[in-house]
Amino acid sequence: MPEILRNIHFVITVNPAVQLVRVTRSAVPSESAMQFEAKWMEACRALDRAGRSGLSLLLDLRAAVGRNDPEYELAMQRVRPAVMRGFRRVAVLVQTPAGALQIHRHLREDGIERLIGSDEDRLLDYLLDAGPHGR
């Protein structure tokens, strides 16, 4: 799959054959909430260049170091809509039940529909199903 962005925090690839964008977050922690937000916005610009319409998005956050201190929470609240908007479907791949709980809380906060889980095959089945309502 062609890469559209690679930096210390993200690798973003696009598979046009199946209309899938994959954002993989590295385990490298952000130095500050400001850097965290800046790197996510860099990822957003790459997603914009890829074009979002008709594509599905897989966010692979398994390696990410979780943060829930107020500065990071505010930064994430600002970037989530920018990252996820415009995609046909969104799924978030997490490593732990605690990670899933945090992403579920974000879903309640911002109302962006997404599937969350640790089973990559299940999430890919959801993202790659071309039907308007899933299976």
Rank of each mutant, 00 (worst) to 15 (best):
L5I: 05
L93D: 05
M41E: 15
V23Q: 07
R114A: 14
I112E: 00
D119H: 09
F87W: 00
C44K: 09
G99D: 14
R6V: 12
D129H: 07
E37A: 09
E42A: 11
R45P: 00
A100R: 12
W40C: 13
K39P: 03
D48S: 10
D110M: 01
L5F: 07
D129E: 10
K39Y: 10
R122T: 12
A82Y: 09
V28P: 04
R62Y: 07
A130W: 07
H106V: 13
A130D: 12
D60M: 04
C44T: 11
F10Y: 13
D125M: 10
V83I: 15
D125R: 15
L59C: 15
R88W: 06
V65N: 08
M1S: 12
T13H: 06
Y72N: 11
W40P: 03
A130E: 14
F87V: 01
L107P: 00
A100E: 12
D121N: 11
F36C: 13
E120V: 06
S26G: 05
W40E: 13
M34P: 00
Q35W: 08
G86Y: 07
E42C: 03
L20K: 03
P2D: 15
R89K: 15
V83L: 15
V65W: 04
R25T: 14
S30H: 14
R25Y: 09
P132Q: 06
V18M: 02
D69W: 08
Q95T: 02
T13G: 13
S118N: 15
L57A: 10
R114W: 02
P16C: 10
E113L: 15
A17L: 12
G134R: 02
